[in-house]
């Protein structure tokens, strides 16, 4: 897994085709989380799996994998802070985590805009956090910097 060359050309080409679809699927699962099964956590897991696939196919040191590895930790923190900020916005509607955005018709995407935004924040948090944990463990021998303590972060989504 720590082979930085990645896998064969077949795997790499297929991954290039699939990666976008996987990410869009993850996004859709998160976006419609308040209407259908799924949500930010499930969507984030799918997105993280897409990134893991990229690392397996292209190796950790180049291609999209390297980019994700570099930014995962920061994106993870941004996702968490975005969630907190959205939750604090609930104070404008009376209490913490309250839905503050105007609500549309039931059973449409706009029925609960604040939940959609919260789900997207969780998507970012879980996707990046899970991937950061994976890369910390999978690339352990390569990097050998003390970032492994990072990997507990998935625990508060």
């Amino acid at each position: 897994m720590s082979d930085s060359q990645g896998m064969s050309i077949v795997v790499r080409v297929v991954t290039r085709w699939l990666l976008g679809l996987i990410l869009i699927f993850g996004l859709a699962v998160a976006l419609y989380g308040h209407l259908t099964p799924g949500g930010g956590f499930a969507g984030g897991t799918i997105v993280a799996c897409g990134f893991v696939l990229a690392i397996l196919a292209f190796g950790g040191s180049r291609g999209p994998g390297a980019f994700f590895t570099r930014w995962a930790s920061a994106l993870d923190a941004i996702g968490a802070l975005a969630f907190l900020a959205l939750a604090i916005l609930g104070f404008t509607a009376g209490a913490f985590l309250q839905q503050w955005a105007a609500r549309g018709d039931a059973f449409t995407l706009g029925s609960a805009p604040s939940i959609v935004l919260l789900n997207l924040a969780i998507l970012l948090k879980v996707g990046a956090g899970l991937f950061a944990g994976f890369s910390a463990i999978a690339l352990f021998e390569q990097t050998a910097d003390p970032d492994t303590a990072d990997s507990e972060k998935g625990a508060d989504a």
Partner: peptide
């Protein structure tokens, strides 16, 4: 203090 408490009906 209650966090959340979302109603099922939109209005």
């Amino acid at each position: 203090s209650i966090a959340g408490g979302w109603s099922l009906e939109s209005q």
